[in-house]
Structures are given as structure tokens and as C-alpha cells.
Design a protein around this nucleic acid. Structure first.
Length: 720
RNA sequence: GAGCCCGUAGCUCAGCAUGGAUAGAACGCUUGCCUUCUAAGCAAGAGGUCGUGGGUUCAAAUCCCACCGGGCUCGCCA
């Protein structure tokens, strides 16, 4: 708005042989002035106060200026302070500048293209998110991933990217093979799910995992031949035998640790040994705790899900679970037995169907599901390994096991060619080796991930790929890059990004897939929906609105409630920056007075209601053809400036991987609406020109809120 | 042991990229405002050693260093 003054002031400074250029700032209050700059920036070694007084004289010829004053932040007493030169404009000049600014702002907001940017026009981006294991329901923890990923994809799209949203289906692995075995058993016994299938499979998973874990603990024991009981549960004597065994082992390690600790100046090798020993110790301690833990889980699951538990236990007791798990997984990985493969595929498709339904309610969709098994069967992971095997950085260990060892000398080149700053590496110095293949010759997850990355680049030819994965996976996500680089895929290594977010915890609750204990995404939705209905009915009652009677009225109410539910579930998961760990307090999120999501929708509904009324009762439609001389409120300038900020925030959100920028912007805009609404009545004025002008302001704010909410994947409602 | 993230009001968080006047908001608390465009709202008030200590600078919540507290990661798991 004061661009011209900035240019002129800089010209004057140059004329007076002051080299430093200034940028104009906004004083904290209008009483101080309309714009200002910091004298210290240009005063150099001179005393800033003296210098400032001299400066004042340079600007006497500037037109439209009412007064220029000097301000010392240190006050009278202080010696050091910031010296501001404050400019106050003539009232007429100020209003005309303001009206010009508002007019030009609103012209832009009124355009169809408002709410988008051209930053990435013509480019393509792939966003992979959610990718939750298809063995137990999507829970609130997964939901942060989904909502972050979905929102980020929308933001990227608004900046011009063509977007592909992918879900990577981890359908190969130990856990899913346990579910497959359980599923096959229930299928043969003709046990059908009586609850939503993902919950049903979550229970099968918890039960099978419990049996398997107990079995594994027993197998590891040296006593298993003689004294341990057979079967998939612990007897009292099992527990005491196993605990004694662990105690003995822990003691041995502890004494080793003690001997090293005594040494005054331990060598580096000894230090390393000490670290390893301590790690072993924690591992052993954890394992010993597992005995009682799984014993507890066993009875817990038995009590909670008897109709699945008993038949599964009975059937599993007839077989060697460890052996079957290995054969099933191996067979599925190699796709050698059509029947076994079909079991895996069936259960996955059940679960994914349930996931799509759950996420669909949250306004989250995918363009494609990529199956890990397809990737495995295609042999692409093996190809990658074969190619990498020629590298001098590959270390072979027992059997067919291969690991990739990161050569420190190659890191500099990698850093240079991919533009990835060494300071941004998750580890300084030696990057830990990456295990690519098991001793039995099957590819491990990292190898598949490399292959999948290549596949994504080849399939969509994107400019960038974002993997939305929790911050815990920072290292493995980084480890992908150097092998890609070494395979000659420099561009891929350069353009593959880890969009990381920290975990979400639930206040007062622990979630555990192993115990089939979680707040599912469905629970979260349903609970919010119900409370939204109560809140809406309360407020309707206050306003004297009747409760819905006809089918149409019910349907309309449900649509509104759905929108509110989306706002109050999605908003808390993006309103703070992704890198911060958040603790969801359900009582807080479900209190609509505390939640900013519905607040924004409420602002939109209020704006809409004015517009509707204006059209119905006065037959006035908002139009840009208004008399801008009618706008003399500084509030409108602030509002129009804020509306113009959207594009900048959009680009920033895309650049810094931070959708919270948009959330904050929306919230502030809603606040502007509320304040404007209270301060400036629109339809109660006689002056038609003022009514039209204010109505247009309301229409522009409504558009802004609509654009903002849409970018966040939250519906803007016309009524609430 | 090494690396990364976090530490700002009673609670939940903005602000830090690009240093600049009195550090913002929501909730909670206190006080007003519904016969007037939707009170899921508005106005006002109380509430802060910006984790600690040092450094750079005319100027530090913001940049640098050290430390303290919390979390995460470092597997033939995925």
C-alpha cells in the first residue's frame, strides 16, 4: 500500500548518500503513525537519535505527509534502543490510498483463480500416505497421517501440481501371515464377522499374535525340551521356569557390564562393547517382561472375544504355528500356492474396503492402491538387489544375506548432486548399514522400498514424491536415497521427500494393536457426530428452531452434522505443525466451544445468512461494482490484506510442508468476519450504497473462508 | 554413546525461515452484551524470568555455543 512512499524514501536516501535501503514497516498502533522504518539500519556509526533528527529534514518535501516523528523504544532514560521514524499521512491521502488498496485487493479476491497459485503449474507430485497395515482398523494414530497427507495433497494441488495419491499396502510380512492363518481357520469353521470387518480382523490379529508370541518365547527357551508345557499358553510353572532363565542371563550380562565399568580408562572397543551389552540387557529385560505381559493378554483376549478365541486356540493347537507361519509367508511371497495367496488377498481386500469406507467419511480418497505383494511378485525388488550387488558397497553376510554399507567418501558427492545439505542428514558420520536381503534369499523391506520408489517415479514421472511417514522413520527414509543415487537415479534421490509428522497420543488412554485396544477412526467420527447433534439441538432450541420431523429435515441436519464432524476431527490434527507431538484430549476436541473448526464454519454460515437475506428481502446481490468511497473503515483494509495473504500462505505451506499455515489463516479470517459482523451492521442501514459496499465485504470474506476450508478438505456450510 | 524433534500464560498452541516498538490466539477464570443481519458469537480484564547460562548485535522468543528437562531413532521388524 505504501510502495510508492518506500520507493521515494529510498530515492531520497540515495540522494543524500545513504547506501542502505529500507523497507517500510507497520507501527504497532495507528496513533504512532501509518508507516515507519528503523533508523538504526541506516545510521551506521552515527548516534541514531541525532541521525534520525537529521533524517527528518530530508523528507519535508514528501507529499501527503502530515507529520514525521522520532520514537525511541528505550524511552527517556535508556541509552540503547530502537529508533523509529514514524510517518503519519494526511487524512485525505490516507483514505484515498486505503480505498485504492482495498479496491485492488478485492478485485483479486473476486477473480475465479483466487485461492490457487501458479507456483507449481505444469508439475506433477505423488503423495503417498496412510499406508496402514491391513490387519487392524484405522485408529486415531493413523488418522493424523491420513489427514496430514490428504490436506497436504490438496495444498499442493492448489499450487498447481497434478496430484497422485497413493496407498502402499503392506500385505507381506509376519503379522499379516498370522492373520491369514487365523482367517483361514475361521473360514473353514464358517465363522462370519458380526462386527465391522476391520474390527473383526483386528481381533483375529490380536489373538493370533498372542499365541505366536507365547510360542516364540517358549521356543527360545533352553528348557523347552524337558519342562515347559506344550501348547499356546503359559502354565504357572512355565512362567517361573522362564523367568529364572531370564534372570540368570541378565545376571551374566550384568556382571560383564560391571567388569568393564570398573576399568578406569576404557578403550574405544570396550566402550562399544559396553554399549552393546547394555542394549542386550534392555532387550532381555523387555523380553522377560513379555512373559507376564502375554500371559495377561491371553486372558484378556479370552475374556473379551470368546467366540473367536476358543475356536482359534483349538485349531492352532493342532498345528505347528511357527512352521505354518513360515510356509504361508514364503509361499505368498513367491506366489507358489494359489490357495494361500487367495487367503491373503481376500483378507486384505476385506480390510481395505473397510478402510476406504472409514477414510471416505473423512473426505479422504486415493487414486491408487499399490500392493507390496505385486511388487514382490514382479521381481522388481530382486532386480534392484541384483543391480546393487555389483556395487563395491555391498557386503555379503551368512547365506544370501546382503547389506548395503554407506561409504563415507561417496556422501560428499551425493550431497552435492542431490542438493541435500550434509547438516540435514539424520546421522552425522557413518550411516548404519542397510539390510537388503535375508539369508534365505527373500528381499527385505528396504529393498522393496527402493524398488517401489523407482516404480513410482517411472509410472507417474513426477517432479516430486512425498512419503507421509511418521518421524520415527526418518533414518530408513534417508537410507533409501543413497542406493537410489548409486543406481544412477540421481533425480529420484533428489526429489524423494519424507513428509514427517510426530505421533499422536490420546490423553488417558493407551492404544495397542496387540491387545485390540484402540480408539478407531470410526469411534472418533461417531462420537463427534453424536456430540455435534447434541450441541446443535441445544443451540437450535435457544434460537427457537424446531427439531427435524420430515425425512428431508433429518437428511439436511445430518449433512450439517457431517460437515461439523469433519471440521472438528480434521482441524485439530492439522492446526499445529506436523513436527510437534500432539496429545488428543477427546473431551476437549469434542467440546465445540473450544474447537476452532466449527467456529470457522459458523462464520461462513453467518456470512451466508446475511447474503441470503439481502437477496430475499432487499433484492441486492453482492457485486464488485460498488462505490469504494463508501468504505472508510480501517478494518476493511486489514481484512482485504488478509485475504490477499492466502496465496503466500499457500506457497509457504507447500514449501515448508506445513498445512497449519492455512488452518491459522482460516481461523483468523473467521475472527475478522465475527468482529466485522458485530461492529458493522449491513442490512439495517438506509444508505443503499453503504449496504452494497458492506455486503460485498461480507461476500469476499465468505469466499475466503470457503476457499480456505476447501483447501483443508473441510466442507463450508451455508447453515449451521 | 551418537543423531533428530520438542520446551513460550493455568491448559492447548501461534510467532523463529527473513532479528526490530508493549511476545499473540483459543479454552478456563472475572465483568458486561440476545424484542435489532444465527450468542457455536462480541467487548473488556486478570494471567508470561519465551527451559537455563553464555555469545554475536545498536537491537535476540527469533541467529551461534554449552547445559538441563521430555520424546524418538540407531535390527536378517515393517
Amino acid at each position: 500500500m505504501y510502495q510508492e512512499y518506500e520507493t521515494k524514501i529510498n530515492e531520497i536516501l540515495v540522494k543524500n548518500e545513504i547506501q542502505t535501503s529500507i523497507t517500510l514497516l507497520q507501527p504497532p498502533s495507528l496513533e504512532l503513525g501509518d508507516f515507519c522504518f528503523v533508523v538504526n539500519r541506516v545510521s551506521g556509526k552515527n548516534d541514531p537519535i541525532e541521525f534520525g533528527n537529521k533524517l527528518k529534514d530530508f523528507f519535508v518535501d514528501l507529499s501527503g505527509i502530515h507529520s514525521i516523528t522520532l520514537f525511541n523504544t528505550a524511552g527517556e532514560s535508556g541509552k540503547k534502543g530502537v529508533i523509529y521514524l514514524n510517518f503519519t499521512l494526511d487524512e485525505n491521502m490516507k483514505i484515498s490510498l486505503m480505498q485504492n488498496q482495498i479496491q485492488s485487493n478485492f478485485k483479486n479476491v473476486n477473480k475465479k483463480s483466487y485461492g490457487t497459485s501458479q507456483l507449481n503449474t505444469g508439475k506433477t507430485a505423488v503423495v503417498e500416505h496412510t499406508s496402514a497395515n491391513p490387519i487392524s482398523p484405522i485408529h486415531v494414530g493413523n488418522l493424523r497421517n491420513s489427514i496430514q497427507g490428504d490436506t497436504y495433497a490438496r495444498i499442493l494441488k492448489s499450487t498447481g501440481y497434478k496430484i497422485h495419491r497413493l496407498y502402499y499396502v503392506n500385505d507381506v510380512g509376519l503379522q499379516i501371515s498370522l492373520v491369514a492363518i487365523g482367517y483361514e481357520i475361521t473360514k473353514n469353521l464358517n465363522i462370519k464377522p458380526v462386527i465391522k470387518v476391520d474390527l473383526h480382523f483386528g481381533q483375529i490379529y490380536a489373538i493370533m499374535n498372542c499365541f505366536y508370541s507365547i510360542d516364540q518365547i517358549k521356543r527360545k527357551s533352553k528348557n523347552k525340551q524337558n519342562s515347559l508345557s506344550k501348547g499356546y499358553q503359559f502354565t504357572e510353572s512355565d512362567i517361573s521356569i522362564l523367568q529364572d532363565e531370564y534372570k540368570a542371563e541378565i545376571q551374566i550380562i550384568q556382571s560383564k557390564i560391571d567388569t568393564i565399568t570398573v576399568i578406569d580408562k576404557a578403550s574405544n572397543n570396550q566402550k562399544k562393547e559396553l554399549r552393546d551389552l547394555k542394549r542386550d540387557l534392555t532387550k532381555l529385560e523387555d523380553e522377560s517382561k513379555n512373559i507376564e505381559k502375554y500371559d495377561r493378554i491371553f486372558y484378556n483376549l479370552k475374556g473379551r472375544f470368546p467366540k473367536l478365541f476358543h475356536p482359534l486356540l483349538e485349531e492352532v493347537s493342532k498345528l505347528d504355528l511357527d512352521k505354518r507361519q513360515k510356509t504361508y509367508l514364503y509361499s505368498f511371497e513367491k506366489n507358489t500356492d494359489k490357495y494361500i495367496s487367495s487367503i491373503f488377498r481376500e483378507l486384505v481386500s476385506w480390510n481395505l474396503g473397510a478402510f476406504e469406507w472409514t477414510l471416505g467419511r473423512y473426505n479422504i480418497e486415493f487414486d491408487q492402491f499399490d500392493y507390496e505383494s505385486d511388487l514382490t511378485w514382479s521381481g522388481k525388488a530382486d532386480e534392484v538387489i541384483d543391480q546393487l550387488a555389483k556395487s563395491p558397497n555391498i557386503v555379503a553376510k551368512e547365506g544370501k544375506a546382503l547389506r548395503y554399507s554407506y561409504p563415507s567418501e561417496a556422501m560428499a558427492e551425493f550431497s552435492k548432486k542431490t542438493g541435500r545439505n550434509k547438516n540435514s542428514f539424520p546421522i552425522k558420520g557413518q550411516i548404519p548399514d542397510l539390510q537388503l536381503r535375508r539369508a534365505d534369499g527373500t528381499a527385505l523391506y528396504p529393498a522393496k522400498d527402493i524398488a517401489y520408489s523407482i516404480q513410482k517415479f517411472e509410472e507417474f514421472k513426477p517432479d516430486v514424491i512425498y512419503n507421509v511417514i511418521s518421524t520415527e522413520q526418518t533414518l530408513p527414509q534417508f537410507q533409501l536415497l543413497l542406493p537410489l543415487f548409486e543406481l544412477g537415479k540421481v533425480k529420484y534421490a533428489k526429489n524423494l521427500f519424507h513428509y514427517s509428522y510426530d505421533r499422536v497420543d490420546l490423553k488417558g488412554r493407551t492404544m495397542s494393536g496387540r491387545m485390540a485396544q484402540y480408539i478407531t477412526a470410526d469411534d472418533y467420527y461417531n462420537e463427534t457426530f453424536i456430540r455435534a447433534r447434541i450441541a446443535k439441538r441445544d443451540s437450535d432450541e435457544k434460537r427457537g428452531k424446531s427439531i427435524p420431523v420430515t425425512d428431508e429435515e433429518w437428511e439436511e441436519e445430518n449433512l450439517v452434522l457431517h460437515a461439523i464432524t469433519l471440521a472438528s476431527t480434521r482441524f485439530p490434527l492439522i492446526e499445529s505443525s506436523p513436527k510437534r507431538r500432539i496429545e488428543l484430549d477427546l473431551d476437549r476436541e469434542l467440546d465445540f466451544n473450544r474447537n476452532s473448526g466449527p467456529f470457522i464454519q459458523y462464520a461462513h454460515a453467518r456470512a451466508n445468512s446475511i447474503l441470503i437475506k439481502a437477496e430475499k428481502e432487499f433484492n441486492i446481490k453482492p457485486s464488485i461494482k460498488i462505490d469504494f468511497n463508501q468504505i472508510t473503515d480501517i478494518d476493511v483494509l486489514e481484512i482485504s490484506d488478509h485475504l490477499m495473504l492466502f496465496e503466500e500462505k499457500l506457497n509457504l505451506a507447500a514449501d515448508t510442508q506445513d498445512p497449519s499455515q492455512i488452518a491459522t489463516w482460516c481461523f483468523q479470517l473467521a475472527q475478522y468476519l465475527m468482529k466485522y459482523y458485530e461492529k458493522y451492521p449491513v442490512l439495517k442501514l438506509d444508505e443503499v450504497n453503504i449496504v452494497k459496499a458492506r455486503l460485498f465485504v461480507i461476500a469476499m470474506i465468505k469466499k475466503g473462508i470457503n476457499v480456505g476450508l476447501t483447501t483443508l478438505g473441510i466442507p463450508a456450510v451455508d447453515r449451521l
